[in-house]
Design a protein around this nucleic acid. Structure first.
Ligand SMILES: [Mn+2]
Ligand SMILES: [Mn+2]
Ligand SMILES: [Zn+2]
Ligand SMILES: [Zn+2]
Lengths: 149, 149
DNA sequence: TTACTTATTTGTAATAATTACAATATCATA
DNA sequence: TATGATATTGTAATTATTACAAATAAGTAA
């Protein structure tokens, strides 16, 4: 249920957010790489293509896109913010060994919130941490258990 | 279902974590102030009592206590880490206006995780953002709606 | 107690992510 | 093409966290 690139352009136009070259490149990057990238990753990769791109512009673009509701900001670790084009509610699992962030579907409404009746909820986040299957296998092959991860 | 101070001391001794004066002060602070404080808050408040306390020690103590399983690290915003003595699973609601973080109970196991069957889950987090009842009222009294928050 | 060993604390410096801001470039429209 | 508004850049500032070595405190056994 991912939005098409054209739909996103329309959304941006509706909200009077200019479709500047760099913004579209950032958007395109997110659309191509569903890996919840960091600013660093986006900047490093795009910089190869667009040598004049600055990191500030990546930040600016992501904030503009987030305000427009096209991009979701994911905070799992306090030392890195990650960005996601998928704005439909879903959970995130971060592997503590390889760092990859996986999506998983959740029925967010099953989380009872009767205690929050008088709160206005604007955003819901669910994230898990642990070890992914690939890393579990590697860990089994070696004996890294001893060192904790 | 909060742990008693004595129980926590026993846990620390079991794990061979020394009950140093400063660590106990940090622990005591968390026990008295269930406000999910930042390092800054802990440091500022304790520093009045213990003028020789350094911020590094607050970080060290919190990490030691977290490793011992007595303290939970909460990452909601990427620019501030918060700490919680309550390690039983529960959700957090952060008010985007006043910044207060509220607890709420969740039945974490209701979140279906069949997609994560082959993952080893070590930690689950649920947090919401929005506006708390107090702020909603204040906002209604004024007309801050216009400015978005 | 004392001497010795080990862990903690301190203070400062380094790191790293993000933001602020002013100058410059680009875009949209007339 | 000219004009005004917005986007982008580059740099500097800010801020949270970590690294590290020296000083201090705590723990232990004689
Ligand atoms: Mn995602
Ligand atoms: Mn809590
Ligand atoms: Zn992994
Ligand atoms: Zn509030």
């Amino acid at each position: 249920m991912r939005r098409s690139f054209e739909d996103m352009k329309i959304l941006l136009r509706q909200q009077n957010i200019k479709l500047s070259h760099h913004r579209l490149k950032v958007l395109e990057y997110l659309a191509k790489h569903h890996i919840h990238p960091t600013v660093e990753q986006i900047y490093d990769d795009l910089h190869k293509e667009i040598p004049t791109l600055s990191k500030t512009t990546v930040y600016n673009s992501l904030h503009a896109l987030a305000n427009a509701g096209l991009v979701r900001i994911i905070t799992i670790e306090d030392n890195e913010t990650r960005y996601d084009l998928e704005v439909e509610p879903h959970g995130h699992f971060k592997c503590e060994r390889c760092g990859i962030i996986f999506n998983f579907t959740i029925d967010i409404d099953k989380i009872s919130t009767n205690e929050l009746n008088h709160f206005e909820i604007r955003e819901k986040s669910v994230y898990f941490k642990g070890i992914c299957p690939t890393c579990l296998q590697q860990v089994k092959d070696n004996d890294y258990w001893r060192i904790g991860i």
